[in-house]
Write a protein that binds this DNA or RNA. Structure first.
Length: 860
RNA sequence: GGGCGGCUAGCUCAGAGGGAGAGCGCUUGCUUCACACGCAAGAGGUCGCUGGUUCGAAACCAGCGCCGCCCACCA
């Protein structure tokens, strides 16, 4: 035994080695990217987690995927940059801090802006550090020397620069518009941040009298009667015969008395309700547009906190909107305006960050014109500059781009990137990258900055290049932009991915990445959405503590790209922990049997034993499958193939087969088993970096980190179909003997095997050994006939050989029948490809032969 | 309303035109000198339903049914 590896414990303990390997990797600086390296570059920017809390399973899955690609690319000759960072997540973080303050019995207003900012800074520092620690526990090979945060001074400049460039293009405009308003966040949010939830409400049918025709009225249907206080019109479809005569007349708004012009507009759905629509431009997006088209008055009847703002109607003024709804309904009923109600199920917008019901209302906001950028993004996509995996997701993105609307980029928050526009004492408004000290138009030094901040996604949209130093022309930016890959969950395809593509084209003139991988979303074991507020989220650190990071990662690789949702399944993670333990013990076995001599890597043309050639051929096939899996964005193919090879081919059969040779110090067995481990650890390293690193260093010789080794290139000359076929036969024979033994309830070892016809002597001896029987010339009794080769077997301690082969005979007969029926079908023989017909004939012949062996007679 | 995905063993999931697979669980037998985080043997499936295409369909097409996701001017 080598003194370098005195003793390996009986089982692998991930906890004992993972942290120290990570520290060694970091210390050696092997994750740092060298912009001046002559190697081809491969770069990825980690999707910056929100600094709102700790990482969840989705992050872990994503991190495992990214790290798999990062390590694979390094091992296949690339200079890899995988850049880490975090996102300030303005609205979410502000909510988190506000909740904390509420728990402490205070508010941000009481605290004041400065102390609030201190709280935020402290939060960012502590949570940001925790997040990076979690990535380290996962084994993520991030280049921490390039860690970025979306509120870094440099990043702030990038954001301001982007804003000013848009400003200079004339794409930014500010004005009162109907927006999605969160009355709890006290901020506008974009269309994409509205989460629609099903509500069971009531549809109210309300009669609005017609001014010009006494006694007549128009019946409208609404779920929000309280908003009628701000009605300024009634709309009907222009082609609706029921209402054509009313167009141009006026309705009188009940409870208020306002005159409402009756207008005709195409958007009115004649099928819905009564076909007549009350128009409330101040509190409904559709109505706002109708109002614009027909010049209707715009009335705002709500305060920003959701209370009604109707000073002329003191009965309702200042009350929450839902309370006013009840009062309005009561009063309508009293005035005989309410004709009927019916239950109504529909979707209501909620704030995706705090779940409050969104109030559409009028507010002054900054909008960014999106049309020109969207067109360029669509064109880039059509030129194939961005490839999506799975491809179908490209459509999600294109559909959104094609129907794109201007982006409300302003938010009324305390936290975030302040909008860099200023107004001077003389009313001149301008945008500035740097903090200005005077107005460029009139030199006034009295400047007021816009109080609003930018949508967090505005800064996120710049991530692939702002992290590399943009707007400066840095070496990193020149070297690593465009990046190669972005992997993300499908729910932020439009929020994030599409916007990165648009800004990348706009500011860098090139798409920010050429590949987009959409990975699956981790659900709870019972298929629910994991969320911390529901308390059903799983902490990846808990999983790592119990099963090791490698097990979590391997599970991630096996599910991330294979479906759109994946239920969290601890048993599969545990399976990969056992796999790590299996690798540990296989290594323990092999290393223990190696001598002090150095062993040559087996050559493809060496004169090797059948099983040696077989395992090398299987290894070759595994390498090819793993490479294809990784390159084709199907990591599950790679990890499953490696698992299957390592456990079932290598451990179950190869190591069992060569144990005697290892004991005897057979150089070929030593060299081949060592070689397989060597290749296996390199193959598997991108998926399970810790255990492979640990075991790699337990192999003989001075060894550098696995990640600095080449990922196995394979050599097609190791491919040996003949050896594979012969070992398949050998395995089938061993399994048949074991089955017979079990069926005969014979002891687990012992018994005799007699060949009835000559068979490869080496294979026969090995098969006998693996099946724990002795190879003999004569049996004591008749024995049990086998089907895989012409042979009979008998087991000790049995009076009469039991009939263990009836079931086999029946199965073979069924197969023969099916096969013969197929071959008797003229259409099949005539139309199926020759190779398929040939294979069927071969099958029939094999089954016939097996039956003849069983019965010792010719089968017709 | 539009689009997309899923429905395969008890559970979680692979498989994408030529004999149904894995992990876990289950049954039986093994303290075999790498591993009981293991070894060996086994049970278990009209591949959601109905039609169609094909010599041949779990896979391709159409329709339907659940479950989920995304998008939509969603009164």
């Amino acid at each position: 035994m080598s003194q370098k590896h005195p003793q390996m414990p009986k089982s692998y303990d991930p906890q004992a080695v993972e942290a120290s390997w990570y520290a060694r990797w970091e210390e050696a600086g092997i994750f740092g990217a060298d912009a001046r390296s002559p190697k081809p570059k491969y770069s990825m920017a980690l999707p910056p987690p929100n600094v709102t809390g700790e990482l969840h399973m989705g992050h872990a899955l994503q991190g495992a995927l990214y790290d798999m690609w990062a390590r694979y690319r390094r091992m296949t000759g690339y200079e890899v940059l995988w850049l880490p960072g975090t996102d300030h997540a303005a609205i979410s973080t502000q909510n988190v801090i506000e909740r904390q303050l509420a728990d402490e019995g205070t508010t941000k207003e009481e605290l004041g802006r400065d102390r609030f900012n201190e709280r935020v800074e402290a939060w960012y520092a502590s949570v940001g550090a925790t997040i990076m620690e979690q990535f380290k526990e996962l084994g993520a090979s991030l280049d921490f020397s390039r860690l970025r945060f979306t509120m870094d001074p440099g990043y702030v400049r990038a954001v301001r620069t982007a804003f000013v460039r848009f400003w200079e293009k004339g794409w930014l405009y500010r004005g009162p518009r109907i927006v999605n308003w969160c009355p709890r966040c006290l901020s506008a949010i974009s269309d994409l941040e509205v989460e629609w939830q099903v509500h069971h409400d009531t549809l109210y049918y309300i009669r609005y009298p017609i001014e010009e025709v006494p006694g007549q009225g128009v019946l409208i249907a609404t779920v929000r009667p309280e908003t009628m206080l701000a009605d300024t019109g009634v709309a009907v479809h222009p082609d609706d015969p029921r209402y054509r005569h009313m167009v141009g007349k006026h309705a009188i708004l009940p409870l208020v008395g306002r005159r409402l012009p009756i207008v005709a507009d195409e958007v009115v759905n004649r099928e819905f309700g009564t076909g007549a629509l009350k128009v409330t431009p101040g509190h409904d997006a559709v109505d706002w547009e109708i109002g614009e088209r027909h010049g209707l008055e715009l009335i705002s009847a709500m305060h920003l906190d959701g209370r009604m703002d109707v000073p002329d109607l003191p009965a309702y003024d200042g009350l929450p909107s839902l309370a006013v709804r009840e009062l309005v309904v009561r009063d309508l009923e009293a005035g005989a305006f309410l004709l009927k109600t019916e239950p109504y199920t529909h979707e209501v917008g909620h704030c995706d960050r705090c779940d409050s019901i969104i109030e559409p209302l009028i507010s002054e906001q900054w909008f960014l014109k999106m049309g020109p950028m969207a067109e360029r993004a669509i064109a880039a996509s059509q030129r194939g500059q961005v490839r999506w995996h799975a491809q179908r997701y490209e459509r999600t993105y294109l559909d959104w781009l094609r129907g794109i609307r201007d982006w409300n980029v302003s938010r009324q928050l305390w936290l975030g990137h302040r909008i860099p526009t200023y107004t001077c004492a003389n009313g001149h408004q301008f945008a500035s990258i740097d903090e200005p000290d005077h107005c460029p138009e009139c030199a006034s030094a009295t400047l007021e900055q816009d109080p609003d901040v930018l949508d967090t996604w505005f800064s996120s949209a710049l991530w692939p290049f702002a992290t590399l130093g943009w707007p400066d022309d840095t070496e990193d930016l020149r070297t690593f932009y465009p990046t190669d890959l972005n992997a993300t969950a499908r729910e932020i395809i439009n929020l994030w991915v599409s916007r990165m593509i648009m800004t990348g084209l706009e500011f860098m003139g090139a798409v920010p990445f050429s590949e987009v991988a959409i990975h699956s979303v981790v659900q709870t074991a019972d298929g629910k959405r994991m969320s911390k507020s529901k308390g059903n989220a799983i902490d990846p650190r808990e999983i790592i503590r119990r099963y090791g990071a490698d097990a979590l990662r391997a599970w991630g690789a096996s599910v991330a790209m294979s479906s759109q949702d994946v239920r969290f399944d601890e048993s599969r993670i545990e399976g990969f922990k056992r796999f790590a333990n299996k690798l540990w013990n296989a290594t323990r076995l092999v290393v223990d049997k190696l001598g002090e001599d150095s062993l040559a890597v087996p050559a493809p043309d060496a004169d090797l034993d059948l099983v040696d050639r077989w395992i090398l051929s299987r290894l070759q096939r595994t390498i090819e499958g793993a490479r294809r899996g990784i390159e084709d964005f199907a990591p599950q193919v790679a990890i499953n193939g490696i698992y299957d090879f390592a456990w079932h081919d290598f451990c179950d059969w190869y190591l069992e087969a060569i144990k005697p040779r290892l004991r005897d110090g057979d150089p070929a067995a030593r060299a081949v088993s060592l070689h397989v481990l060597d290749v296996l650890f390199r193959l598997l390293h991108p998926f399970m970096p810790f255990v492979t690193e640990e075991l790699w260093h337990r192999l003989p010789g001075d060894r550098d980190f696995v990640m600095r080794q080449p990922w196995p290139a394979g050599d097609s000359r190791f491919s040996d179909p003949d050896a594979e076929a012969r070992v398949d036969k050998l395995i089938a024979l061993v399994e048949e003997i074991r089955r017979a033994r079990q069926a005969a309830a014979a002891p687990s070892r012992g018994g005799r095997l007699k060949l009835e016809q000559p068979w490869e002597p080496g294979s026969a001896a090995l098969a006998a050994d693996l099946a724990a029987v002795a190879l003999v010339e004569e049996l004591a009794a008749q024995g049990i006939a086998l089907t895989e080769v012409a042979a009979r077997v008998e087991f000790p301690a049995l009076g009469v050989e039991p009939d263990t082969q009836t079931a086999t005979r029946e199965r073979l007969l069924r197969e023969l029948q099916r096969s013969q029926a197929k071959l008797a079908d003229e259409d099949f023989v005539a139309k199926a490809p020759q190779s398929v017909v040939d294979r069927e004939r071969q099958r029939a012949a094999d089954v016939k032969e097996a039956l003849e062996r069983l019965d010792g007679a010719r089968v017709p």
